[in-house]
Structures are given as structure tokens and as C-alpha cells.
Simulated assay, not measured.
Amino acid sequence: MKLRTFGLALFGVAGLVSLSACKKDEAAPAPSTPTATEQAKPTAAAPAQTPPAPVGHSTIHGVVKFTGAAPAGADIAPPSDPACEGMALKDQPVMAKDGKLQNVLVRVKGPVAGAPAASQSSPPVVVDQLKCTYTPRVMGAQAGQPIQVRNSDQTLHNVRAMAGGKPLFNMAQPPSMPPVSKATPPDVEMIQLKCDVHPWMKAFVVVSQHPYFSTTGDDGAFSISGLPAGTYTLEAWHETLGTKTAQVTVKDGETAEASFEFNGSDKG
């Protein structure tokens, strides 16, 4: 295929354009230049995503409850970094509202027959660094699915990922750097993200061999869809309160209910 080189002096860019793909003598449209206001706007993090659900048509949803008094969070000294302005000054792992518990990862425990595999081309799990805080704090990922870490702060962060005591990656991420994207290892169940520049920053990625997981919001609710009919053991994990399990049977095309309850005295 013959290629011609068009000198686009108007734009200061040189490009190779296929004659079969473009009309002869037709100029390419000029790229738009963002205004100063648009450049100043923070980029919102994309929602965490999971691979497409399989052929199953069943759903499990429910709520994670919390009773008792929530443990007090650890104080964080006000940072001098202006990019951190507005961040919470307490590290509060137990976030309960109206008796509902946030940041609990609920998943089907063990393998699920017929579950689709994930790969580096699967939609990523996205975590952002905003006001010197990882958002979200707890998320799920399928083994092989990419984890994408963004920096929406105008400051340097350092993304350090650990699985137990095993380092997975450790990368400096200045504000101008593109997102860091790494495949989720197939042989780990928990990844912790930390920032060496801002040591209070932490996030947890719970890794499963299938896409049947959900993280509770401030209403304590979770929903797992696309399941084949069957009987499953659900596992609810919280970073400081530990793990609870429940057995649930769901019929084809129907929705089953499940619930968990944690207490302020639970340890994990």
C-alpha cells in the first residue's frame, strides 16, 4: 500500500496517511486545544470494572450489617503537601452508617465451573489517587485482570504493591505520568497498595479466580450477578474485622438473598 507524507505545517505535526483510507487532497481536521479551564479540571477516575459476566442468569444480593461501636480511627498529621488539602485526617477502616458497613468485599468462595477467564485485555480495575487518598479503598479483581492506578493529584506519588511480604511492583508516579497498569498475578489472593511519599495511603485488592464479587458501599449493599444456578459459599472480608461466611442456594434466573453481620469487637 503506497503511503504519502503530508507536511502539516499548520499543526506542526507530520503523519503518514494511507491513500486508501483518506480522500486525495483532503486535509485532516485540526486537533482541538483544551482551554486553561479545561486543563485545570481534575480527571475523574473511571469506576472499577470487572470482566463480562458468564452465561449464568442468577443473582445474589444482600447487605452487610454492623453492630456495636466502631473502633476509633488513627490520627493522621496534617500533611504539608498542598495537593493533600481536604483529605480525611483519620485513618478509618471501619466505616459504618445507619448500621451498614462499607468496604466489605463479598465474593463466591472457591472455583466456579464455567467461569470466564480474565486477561490483560480485560477491562481494568481502576484505583485513583485523589487528595492523597486511594479511591476506592477496597476493591475486587479477577486473576489476570489489569489493575490501573491513576494519579489525579498535582504531586508525586509512589505506587508500591505487595502480596503479603512479596513485592509486586514499585513505581514513582508524578502527576504528568500516565496511569500505571499491571496484570493481576494468578497466584495471589490479596494485594495491598501503598505510597512511600504519603505513608498513610493504603488500598486493598482482593483477587479471585472468577468475576463473582462485589464491594459494599455506604449502604452496605452488595450484588453478584451472572451466576450459574447452584449452592455457593459466600465470603465477606473486611480489612480489620476479619471474614464471615454464609451458604446460599440460587435457582436459574432467580435472585437469592444473603446477609452478614460484623461487630465492633470482631478481629481479623
Rank of each mutant, 00 (worst) to 15 (best):
P51M: 13
T184Y: 00
A88H: 12
E239V: 15
V13H: 06
N158L: 06
L16G: 07
R137S: 07
P185W: 04
L105V: 03
H57L: 09
K267N: 13
T155E: 15
R137D: 01
F204V: 02
E235T: 02
Q120R: 11
G253L: 05
D252M: 06
S152K: 03
M139D: 13
P123I: 05
F213T: 00
D196N: 12
G56H: 06
V126W: 00
F11A: 15
T243K: 10
G140R: 03
A40P: 01
S176D: 14
K24I: 03
Y212S: 04
D153S: 08
K24F: 02
D91I: 02
P52H: 09
T233W: 04
I76W: 08
T5Q: 09
G114I: 11
M162P: 04
A118G: 06
L193Y: 14
N263D: 08
A77I: 02
A36I: 08
R150F: 00
Q209W: 00
G110P: 01
P93N: 15
H238M: 13
T249M: 07
A96N: 11
L105Q: 06
K2D: 10
T37L: 15
K24T: 01
V138G: 13
T35V: 07
K100G: 05
K41G: 02
G99I: 12
D25F: 14
H61Y: 12
T215H: 05
E239Q: 15
V13Y: 06
H210W: 02
Q49H: 05
A14P: 00
P175D: 00
A44R: 09
Q49D: 12
T215S: 10
L19S: 10
H238S: 10
P93Q: 14
I76Q: 02
K244G: 02
A118V: 04
H210V: 06
S20F: 09
V112K: 03
A246K: 12
T155Q: 05
M162F: 14
P29Q: 02
K109R: 08
R150G: 01
H210Y: 06
D153K: 01
V13A: 14
P174L: 04
A113N: 04
E239W: 11
D252T: 13
A53P: 08
S80P: 08
K23D: 09
G230Q: 03
D187Q: 14
S259I: 00
A69W: 04
T5F: 13
E85G: 12
A161M: 12
A70L: 07
T243N: 11
V64S: 06
K90F: 08
T59Y: 02
T133E: 15
L130S: 11
L101E: 01
A183F: 03
A70T: 08
